[in-house]
Design a protein around this nucleic acid. Structure first.
Length: 156
DNA sequence: GCCAACGTTGGC
DNA sequence: GCCAACGTTGGC
């Protein structure tokens, strides 16, 4: 049984274009430092799951691409690297605190499906994005809503 | 850049 | 284990 997700990223730091420019290559989705998001990465995200790449904190906020999970949760190596901005001195290799998954771009959409548009869709009521004050960087999406949104993205 | 809505930390 | 203070996220 596959799951559906939405992963947020700030395109200034990492965008769907970075994935599109390296076709077929795998990307480590690292740097997630929120416990609820971590739990999803560690326990729920499975190989084959479908993922929306969502651009936040930018000019055009919204869903920018579709990706696929190619490796399930494993310890995020950046937490052990003192040089990394994601370094966590309280974590250890024996008891890793943070997890990451690997993804691969399926396709970039012709246009971003904007948050504004998503909020106007009567079919979309459950996704964390449209619920007030949801700041999760990794969030599950109901199958029905995911497939509906995907149709909209491909229709742009 | 503002600010609301979170999440985290740490004193008690 | 409560909760105030503080830090961060993210839409606008």
């Amino acid at each position: 049984m596959m799951n559906y997700w939405l992963f947020k990223t700030e395109p200034d730091a990492f965008s769907v274009d970075d994935l599109a420019n390296r076709p077929g290559q795998t990307e480590h989705w690292d740097g997630i430092r929120n416990y609820q998001a971590r739990n999803f990465l560690r326990d729920k995200v499975q190989v084959g799951d479908a993922v929306f790449i969502y651009h936040s904190s930018c000019k055009e906020v919204g869903i920018a691409g579709l990706a696929e999970v190619v490796k399930a949760g494993y310890p995020d190596h950046s937490q052990f690297d003192p040089e990394s901005k994601y370094y966590d001195p309280k974590s250890s290799v024996d008891a890793p605190r943070w997890y990451m998954v690997d993804v691969k771009l399926t396709r970039k959409f012709k246009q971003v499906l904007t948050l504004k548009t998503i909020k106007q869709m009567q079919q979309i009521t459950d996704i964390g994005l449209v619920k007030k004050g949801h700041r999760l960087s990794i969030m599950p999406v109901e199958e029905q809503e995911f497939l509906y949104l995907l149709e909209q993205c491909d229709g742009l």
